[in-house]
């Protein structure tokens, strides 16, 4: 029982939720998107500076639970300097990881999100910033909601 909890709240997750990286507004961002979870009120804004095909800078602001905040923080660390195609690829890998626990290839620190899959109610928390990211890099600039994610079990 405690193993599941410590899998979910790994030290890296707790560290990123208490001291999130790139937690600021990006003044020269040319892509932004908001992600909200209407069930619990989690609310994040993703800022990205995209140059051609490249995510040059990325940051976020907002509030929510430890899982969503750590996921957003890890996202910003993982995506800086990546191409949009790589970002989409990483989204798919993270989606698999938090829904099934299966790790396809090396995702670096993001592997810390693996414990989420044992907590179906928390999958939405982990994936929320990633939905916002996809909306941002695809230039949709809209608010995405976890309610677009099907109930996962």
């Amino acid at each position: 029982m405690f193993d599941d909890l410590t899998d979910l709240y790994q030290q890296l997750i707790l560290d990123h939720s208490k001291g999130p990286r790139n937690f600021r507004v990006l003044p020269d961002a040319n892509r932004t998107a908001q992600g909200t979870n209407p069930i619990c009120g989690d609310n994040y804004t993703l800022y990205a500076k995209v140059d051609g095909d490249m995510v040059k800078e990325i940051s976020f602001q907002g509030s929510g639970c430890a899982i969503s905040k750590a996921s957003a923080s890890l996202l910003t660390e993982s995506l800086k300097g990546r191409t949009i195609a790589e970002a989409k690829n990483l989204f798919n890998k993270v989606h698999d990881l938090v829904t099934t626990g299966n790790l396809d290839g090396d995702v670096g620190k993001l592997a810390a999100l693996a414990g989420v899959h044992k907590f179906p109610a928390r999958v939405k928390c982990a994936i929320l910033p990633w939905h916002a990211l996809m909306a941002a890099v695809e230039g949709k600039g809209e608010t995405v909601s976890t309610e677009t994610e099907k109930e996962l079990s």
């Binding site: 709240y9 619990c40 929510g64 639970c65 907590f119």
Partner: peptide
Amino acid sequence: VHAHDVVTV
């Protein structure tokens, strides 16, 4: 500590 984290634990 966010309420959701309280409830999960």
